[in-house]
Design a protein around this nucleic acid. Structure first.
Lengths: 242, 242
DNA sequence: TAAGTTAGTTGCATAGTGCCACTAAGTGGA
DNA sequence: TCCACTTAGTGGCACTATGCAACTAACTTA
């Protein structure tokens, strides 16, 4: 019944296959995610809603899923070498009114200074601040769930990895890095413990520069190995026990 | 070019869509994974190789991807309520000779005492011990890579979660739980620190039973909430720094 | 030159761990 | 009966990263 014959097997009706990306950066309002407005064509599902950038896998152009995600990310942001991680896949009979569909979801972190002009590459794209409750836009498909999973994954991993470093420009100060952690986590961190941990992790290297200001100048650092996160052996503050 | 029209969009050629599961348990030789032998039909790709249980998503029967994974797991093992977690998805033009294909990979942990008779439900299935270098069988498709990712994910999560508890029977002693951790991690753990951590996590409850033997009997415990893992704030032993 | 601000350090108490020794509770053999 | 043996489970001590808080450093501006 399941594997009856070669031809019959391949004749199985195939689900739609798409790729979607949650692209994060840091902005004025904290953590931001890039969304695109769906065409206001009544024949399109979720017309006029906002959605994660993505679309159908193009088996002519895309060698594999990650290449497909990279292509869509490049199209929307112009960023070619971000931090990109697979988030998971969603698939069901009901998530797309056009039929049984699957999506392979990724999430990407792009530096704050690669401020994409959403007008240039993608006129339909806009940055939205991410709050605890998601985003102030009506999202298409199950993208609210996917975005929620992306934010949750990001928050969890920030507890014990160097991910926030990928949200910053190439050069940054320790205080800026700490702010990035705090913005994503939504809680303050201890300055001295933070510095000790980050410096002990051999994660960043000082640059021969100082960040000037109306106060004591700060040492500028850069990542030693861009795109490769570091894992710590502990989370930052132990979560409260239940 | 990308989103030209409604009908044209849906006419995109669709990749093959499958689901595969890495099912782990504990056995004599340590960590075991369930594999099935592919039919020895020359028209089949990778005929005679071993593969992770799985197959095409059946959009008539499967409401969503997880249901599809559950169905295949039930077919092979008879276990209906294991720990099941999505691992990721793989897709490329080359992983299946029949064409551009994707797979949604899951991994499952089943109790040691639900010893499936691979003969009963699935005559083509067998348990293979997992070593550091994978498994002593030639695997079909990219299943060696997927299995490797599953083992890596399992090893990583065991450092800071209660996952090994799902590999044990419903009732177990603390020493048995520690052995489960050690088998998966491949290194010994400190008895007293292990017990302190596990008991403080409010993860298990004592049963009014003792495990008899030729020595001091051990307290028997069971999981408080089956299927829900607990996360610790630290890994077990800090990994050596690079 | 003093006030203000942010960078960065230092000291101390605490929690969880690694290590190791110790006690507890059974079995089985002499 | 008693002693050797085995595994269960606990307790002490040093060490490390942390939480907390006070301190010093460096620069701008009035």
């Amino acid at each position: 019944m399941k594997k009856s014959g070669v031809t019959e097997t391949l004749d199985f009706p195939r689900p739609l296959t798409t790729v979607d990306i949650a692209i994060f950066t840091l902005g004025e309002g904290g953590l931001q995610v890039l969304l695109v407005e769906r065409p206001r064509d009544a024949r399109e599902p979720f017309a006029g809603c906002w959605a994660l950038p993505g679309g159908f896998v193009d088996i002519e152009r895309d060698a594999d899923l990650e290449a497909s995600a990279m292509r869509k990310l490049k199209e929307k942001t112009g960023v070619a070498t971000p931090y990109l991680e697979q988030l998971g896949s969603w698939g069901s009979a009901t998530r797309d009114p056009r039929g049984w569909s699957t999506t392979h979801a990724y999430f990407a972190l792009v530096p704050a200074d690669s401020k994409i002009e959403p007008g240039a590459n993608a006129p339909d794209a806009r940055w939205f601040p991410v709050t605890d409750h998601g985003v102030a836009a009506k999202l298409a498909f199950d993208h609210a769930e996917i975005l929620g999973a992306a934010v949750e994954r990001l928050r969890n991993k920030v507890e014990y990895t160097s991910l926030p470093a990928f949200l910053l420009p190439r050069e940054f100060t320790l205080t800026e890095l700490q702010r990035a952690y705090e913005v994503v986590l939504g809680r303050p961190l201890e300055k001295s413990a933070f510095r000790t941990r980050v410096l002990a992790a051999n994660l960043i290297a000082p640059v021969n520069k100082r960040r000037k200001g109306p106060n004591r100048p700060a040492q500028v650092y850069r990542l030693k190995t861009p795109r490769t996160p570091v894992f710590f052996a502990r989370t930052f503050s132990p979560r409260e026990k239940s």
